[in-house]
Write a protein that binds this DNA or RNA. Structure first.
Lengths: 339, 339
DNA sequence: TTATTTTGTGCAATCGATTGCAAATCCATT
DNA sequence: AATGGATTTGCAATCGATTGCACAAAATAA
């Protein structure tokens, strides 16, 4: 294990017979340094294989050039594509990205946030867990004016930037679509009331029904955790009602898929016996049979934009920028399951 | 913007009328500190809301408690689940994870590695890009004895730990399976020769044919980038041969899916006209019609294990541990497309 | 030539924690 | 009470870069 002497600005300074401060300034393109010495230092730095010690610089400048990310699960397509967007933009600005996952557990989320805080990330991009019903951990950041940006799932009691899709109107759009295609009895498998996204989708559903003069039938609204299993059970309950629905708006693609599987097993024709619409446009939705109508959420863009916004805030932390709530459009994709 | 005075060990020291060194040691459970003062310091730290400055500690100790990860794309299920595994384990050991993606470009990969190096990660877990045909950037790490662990796709010229699946035997297994089910003319859509995984799969394919005494037919081996588009073209070429195959081993599930789509459009029955097997068990593979035979790769476990190994190495950097090549088993999942 | 700017560099403190070595304290033993 | 040894604690240097302020050098003006 041969020791490689790590080159510091002091080594450069010695070689060039100038002070370390000058070296530091030269490397940072400080205007007070003459072009001549700047070149000299540059040259020497390359020659000696100098590499700046990020840690020391961070300690002094109290910046880490790092943004923290908390998502429920990394391996879900919507989130991984958002992360991809975050990483791609952060990259261009020389920022690092630390990823953590909450597994949709409040306790783990608190832990993640705490870790990011301790590691002094310059900002945090977060999509909260299904259990998050408190905001104490998030205040760690907001109290210290460290930027937070929520994407998709947000905590309403924290005042900061948000990037979401228009879940309300999308829920409305989906329901209207089912009505237009002739469905008379439309049910909805919703997610936890706690989360804005599921609440909004449900409200959009209710509004569309109301506008069309369709009464909400007892038992047509299922509130679940939107897992495969819960979806299957909820759909089974719906279909064994005395008057089962002929159209179901599923809270996500996973539950729509379980519904599809239930139909296959029970010999129900989709969309003729019951039409189905999901949410998120998972990679499988386009390729199942029948293909699944769903809503495309711009995951990558949301991540990209969140990164843009947070880095902008970090770089302009002295100026007061009013918080913004970005609402990105969704795209209803009508496929076989509701044609 | 009210300034919150950041508490340091010096503040604690002042309050307790002891030295900062004692505080530091007490907080780090140094044995030379009496139980009494240890408790006192602990108490005070909580009371004053002390939080250690990770940056300062890192600077001094030359450790960052961070591992860097480079994957071709974050939003591919195999990789995102591997990352999930890495994150889950690293979490338990108090390590952070910095994620970067190469987008399967050598240049970007070099950049990623450089950044991780500059940020002084304690170790790097990497799956190389499709273009990687040099190792200079990787030597940055190996030359300085900073641990590298490859997973899935590795660079053969760098001597270090690897975690891979047995692509050769899996390729063999897939091909044998096609032979056993009665296929007489078996083609293979392979990936770039550069990558071990694709080369091994192809060699397994060839070996199985040889063992069965089946000659390799001219034009039955397509080498592609394994994208959806290239897959479709390659499959089309195969099917328009004078003597088209009745079984195709596709290099991954994406190309298997394009094959499936081609068959649907061209009215070919799967598996009767042509049987298909993919690789990776993407989420969509189980739910397409017909469902896709494929191979399950333990992405999560590979990530988890890579994290275990690298953290072990980091914590035992003074001792010499011989490099290991872990070969994890795969699971052939036979579904409708090759039944 | 002298006075006044402008421009370029250096000094030394600082960021917050860690650590080798020395010094101080404690307790037991003679 | 004095000595010896074990146990605790403090001093001060260190990690490597940044930065306010002072000062020197060069350029300009008087």
């Amino acid at each position: 294990m041969r020791k490689s002497p790590e080159i510091t600005i002091h080594h450069l300074a010695n070689e060039l017979k100038i002070s370390a401060s000058t070296v530091s300034r030269a490397l940072n393109d400080n205007i007070k340094i003459s072009e001549k010495t700047r070149q000299l230092v540059r040259q020497k730095a390359i020659e000696m294989g100098y590499r700046p010690n990020v840690l020391a610089a961070n300690l002094r400048s109290k910046k880490t050039n790092t943004i923290g990310v908390v998502v429920p699960r990394i391996d879900r397509y919507f989130f991984s594509s958002a992360i991809s967007g975050i990483e791609d933009y952060a990259w261009t600005k020389g920022f690092n990205v630390i990823i953590t996952q909450s597994n949709d557990l409040l306790l783990k989320e608190i832990n993640c946030v705490q870790t990011l805080f301790n590691n002094r990330v310059d900002g945090m991009i977060i999509s909260i867990s299904m259990q998050t019903n408190e905001d104490k951990h998030l205040r760690l950041f907001s109290d210290k004016n460290i930027p937070i940006i929520f994407f998709d799932r947000f905590c309403p009691t924290i005042d900061c930037d948000r990037i979401v899709v228009d879940d309300f109107n999308t829920g409305h759009k989906i329901t209207s679509h089912l009505i237009e295609r002739g469905c008379k009895r439309i049910a909805h498998i919703a997610g936890p009331e706690l989360l804005n996204i599921y609440r909004d989708r449900k409200d959009g559903y209710l509004k569309a029904l109301k506008e069309a003069g369709i009464p909400v039938i007892e038992g047509y609204l299922e509130i679940t955790g939107l897992t495969k299993e819960e979806g299957k059970l909820a759909f089974a309950r719906l279909m064994s009602l005395p008057n089962p629905p002929d159209g179901v708006f599923c809270g996500n693609d996973t539950t729509a898929l379980s519904a599809l599987e239930y139909c296959q097993i029970n010999n129900l024709k989709v969309p003729n016996d019951v039409a189905l619409v999901g949410f998120s446009d998972e990679p499988f939705s386009a390729v199942v049979t029948p293909s699944l109508s769903t809503v495309k959420q711009p995951g990558y863009q949301m991540g990209f934009q969140a990164a843009q916004k947070i880095i902008y805030r970090i770089k302009n932390s002295n100026s007061i920028i009013p918080f913004e709530h970005f609402i990105l459009p969704t795209q209803l994709i009508i496929r076989e399951s509701s044609k």
